[in-house]
Design a protein around this nucleic acid. Structure first.
Lengths: 162, 162
DNA sequence: TATTGTTATACTCTATAACTATA
DNA sequence: TATAGTTATAGAGTATAACAATA
């Protein structure tokens, strides 16, 4: 599902916002495409990233890291476990809890994914003319910060009440 | 579902890629949050954008514009119609086809949404230091183009085969 | 009483295939 | 025969609520 939310500009150029939305679409498409047939999805890989970043975690910890419900994590972990991406172990100190951790196979997978990210990052950085690089990075950071403020303020800018 | 896919950098800075991924997350969160309770979703609004950009359209045209199946569009249009966002009319020349169009209410809604986008765009543009503005826009365009190339080539950089 | 994870239920998005009506 | 849209079926994500076991 790719949506064109852009508005033609008077000068024929492309708006900053539209470029950012387009980049978001490209990321989503790229991820979805390469997960197909692997048993992975964007949501499932989110769980793997949490485990990669934090090590073995309870499902509650994963849920709170992802900002979703424990119920949802149950389902995602079920699927990941069935496909051999994670193991569930009993928590040593709390018999209610479960520790989820990457299997060796998916730990290796995540390492490769991190490496791919490094390569993509380098490729994108290299695409920017060196003379523009510093200003570009400052500008992008400023845009990201502004967006953070707007979202944190609860201001809605990508839509409006119907 | 917000996933942190970032890797700490040696110099403590934030990678370009991670900033772009973060911006994507912020967009998605912002959209999802403000659609809640409105009867709208990101996918449904995609349909409204197609109608806004192209005027009354057959469902096939919508499906092909969004890169999804006719079946999926049927469901989305059903939901939008039930909530009064679109009307279905018979096609004057082709009795198999249906013309979907915005209701007056959602045409007004889309106009406001476009205006909100304009304002958000202006706010983001204004966040960039004026001295960096030209270089920033060139750099972002270059990054977007590079990403397009990579995705078009079928190179996968956000993940890897499992 | 509070928390962890589960089952139960419901809604949404999406894909493929089969089918109807029309071209 | 091909196309537009539907019904049928299935899998995936996510939310809320109720519940069991444990803290």
């Amino acid at each position: 599902m790719s949506a064109d939310r852009s508005t033609p500009r008077a000068d024929g150029g492309i708006r900053l916002l539209d470029t950012l939305l387009l980049i978001s679409e490209l990321f989503q498409q790229d991820m979805a495409r390469y997960f197909r047939g692997s048993g992975l999805t964007s949501s499932r890989v989110s769980v793997l990233w949490v485990l990669q970043n934090r090590g073995p975690s309870t499902q509650q910890a994963v849920a709170s890291a992802l900002g979703t419900s424990a119920r949802n994590v149950s389902g995602l972990v079920d699927a990941l476990q069935a496909d051999g991406f994670v193991d569930r172990h009993s928590h040593p100190d709390d018999r209610r809890a479960v520790l989820v951790e990457l299997t060796p196979r998916s730990a290796a997978f995540m390492s490769r994914m991190q490496q791919e990210h490094d390569e993509l990052d380098a490729s994108l950085v290299a695409a920017v003319p060196p003379a523009d690089s510093a200003a570009f990075q400052r500008g992008l950071r400023a845009v990201s910060d502004r967006l953070h403020e707007l979202v944190a303020d609860g201001e809605h800018h990508l839509t409006v009440e119907a």
